[in-house]
């Protein structure tokens, strides 16, 4: 395959990921979030724009596009502006290794990297750089505290997430996401590795800064945390990054633990979407059910519960793979 063809494919993939997967999924995610939270709180949620409020997010996005871009006078303009690019970009990079389904021509994936799981861990760890940049560049104490909290939180929760990823890779004998899905032909890894699944889900909720781990943007203490000073489309891009990351985490959980696109009768892509939205529902459900942790509880939970349990689980799995299965 010639390099110009490769380059063209990369550009194509970027446009497709950005417009199709992420923007649409993120917009729909915002709508779902509002509808489900309304349902849980006995409200109606958005209802007036379009049938049953279906077009509400589109209207909101158009509204945000028209808003003025404000840069605070003492903000660091370069960092303030470039942070907006880092967060959604890092979130969108995750989608490269996610297999959405399978067709007659092979799995539906942008690139079946042989280091897929590692790639996912690496790109999702880049989000925190953008958040720190936004928090510092705004020159606002709430934003800075939000950014610092986010850094300590995301660095802490990357470790249990990595341990869960390694456990699955160990069982499947590969880091490639397609091979991990293929290895789940008999059992989903959620059945074989319930502990790793729980650790991954918890760490995923923490990585995307959602309740009960949303100290980063705790409204009652920090206004909106690291993006307090952002307006208009820049604000919308942070939202896009956040929801894009949430969908990427859910899609990775489906791939690693829920058998990916596998399922009877229905076409594979549909199975993938069903599982994806089931997990998204769980994320939203958790958000509107639990109160927020304190920062010390949050860090203690990561370092004193999740990491030891994850390590023990990893050692037990390694023992199983090397001794029992042989």
């Amino acid at each position: 395959m010639s390099w110009s063809h490769e380059l063209w494919r990369a550009i194509e993939g970027t446009v497709l990921i950005f417009s199709g997967v992420a923007v649409l999924a993120a917009m729909f995610g915002v709508l779902l979030e509002r509808k489900i939270s309304g349902w849980m709180q006995s409200r109606l949620g958005p209802k007036h724009v379009g049938p049953q409020g279906l077009l509400q997010t589109i209207a909101d996005t158009i509204k945000l596009l028209q808003k003025e871009n404000i840069v605070p006078r003492n903000a660091d303009a370069t960092i303030f502006a470039s942070a907006v690019l880092v967060v959604p970009l890092a979130a969108l990079l995750d989608y490269v290794v996610i297999p959405f389904g399978t067709t007659r021509f092979g799995p539906l994936i942008f690139r079946d990297l042989n280091i897929g799981v590692l790639y996912f861990a690496a790109t999702s760890s880049l989000v925190v750089v953008g958040i720190l940049m936004a928090g510092w560049g705004s020159n606002n104490k709430y934003a800075l505290v939000g950014g610092l909290r986010s850094a300590s939180q995301m660095v802490s929760y990357e470790i249990p997430m990595g341990l869960a990823l390694i456990t699955v890779a160990l069982l499947a004998g590969s880091l490639s996401t397609v091979k991990i899905v293929a290895a789940q032909a008999r059992w989903w890894y959620a059945v074989e590795q319930p502990l790793a699944f729980l650790i991954f889900l918890t760490a995923a909720v923490a990585e995307v800064n959602r309740v009960p781990f949303d100290l980063v943007e705790a409204e009652s203490e920090l206004v909106a945390g690291y993006f307090s000073e952002y307006t208009g489309m820049r604000f919308a891009l942070f939202q896009l990054g956040e929801y894009g990351e949430m969908f990427a985490m859910a899609a990775m959980a489906v791939t690693l633990f829920l058998g990916g696109w596998r399922g009877p009768v229905l076409p594979p892509v549909l199975w993938f979407v069903i599982k994806l939205y089931a997990l998204i529902f769980v994320f939203i459900w958790v958000r509107w059910t639990y109160p927020r942790f304190r920062i010390d509880q949050l860090l203690n939970f990561a370092w004193k519960v999740l990491i030891p349990v994850g390590l023990a689980n990893l050692v037990a799995t390694a023992f199983f793979v090397m001794v029992v299965r042989r």
Partner: peptide, 26 residues
């Protein structure tokens, strides 16, 4: 060297930079 590349992003771009920023800000 794909594996080294992945580790490079994870450790250097993702962790070392964050650590540096963290230290400066604190």
């Amino acid at each position: 060297a794909e594996f080294v590349a992945g580790i490079q992003v994870l450790i250097y771009a993702g962790a070392i930079t964050v650590l540096l920023l963290f230290v400066i800000m604190l």
